[in-house]
Amino acid sequence: MDPTTLLAFAAAFLVFAASPGPDNMTIVARTLSHGPAAGIAYGLGMVAGILALLVLAAAGLAVVAREMGTAMTVLRNAGAAYLVWTGIRLWTAEPVLPTARTDGRRPGLAASVLTGLALNLGNPKMPLFYLALLPNVVGTVLTPPQVGLLAAVIVAVEALVIGAHVLLAGRLRRLLRTRAAVRRANRAAGGVMVGAGVAVVAVR
Rank of each mutant, 00 (worst) to 15 (best):
N136W: 10
Y82V: 06
R187L: 08
L142E: 06
G39E: 02
A41Q: 12
L54H: 07
R30V: 01
V113M: 11
L32V: 08
L167V: 12
A58K: 02
V198E: 05
F16C: 00
A164Q: 10
T5R: 09
A156G: 04
V138W: 06
R101Q: 10
V28M: 10
V192F: 12
N123G: 03
P107V: 02
L56Q: 03
N123V: 09
A59F: 15
R177E: 08
E158S: 11
A188P: 09
T26P: 03
L32G: 11
G39N: 05
A37I: 04
L44N: 02
T143D: 15
L131W: 03
V138N: 10
T178D: 05
A11W: 10
L175D: 07
M1Y: 04
A152I: 14
L160T: 05
A41Y: 13
S19D: 00
G79L: 00
D103E: 15
P95K: 14
I50R: 09
V166C: 01
G148C: 10
V113C: 00
A48R: 14
L134E: 02
A59Q: 11
F9N: 14
I50Q: 14
D103W: 14
V84A: 05
L142W: 07
L54F: 13
R204S: 09
P135L: 07
V137S: 00
L14E: 00
V201N: 04
T86M: 06
V194Q: 02
S19T: 03
A48I: 10
E67A: 15
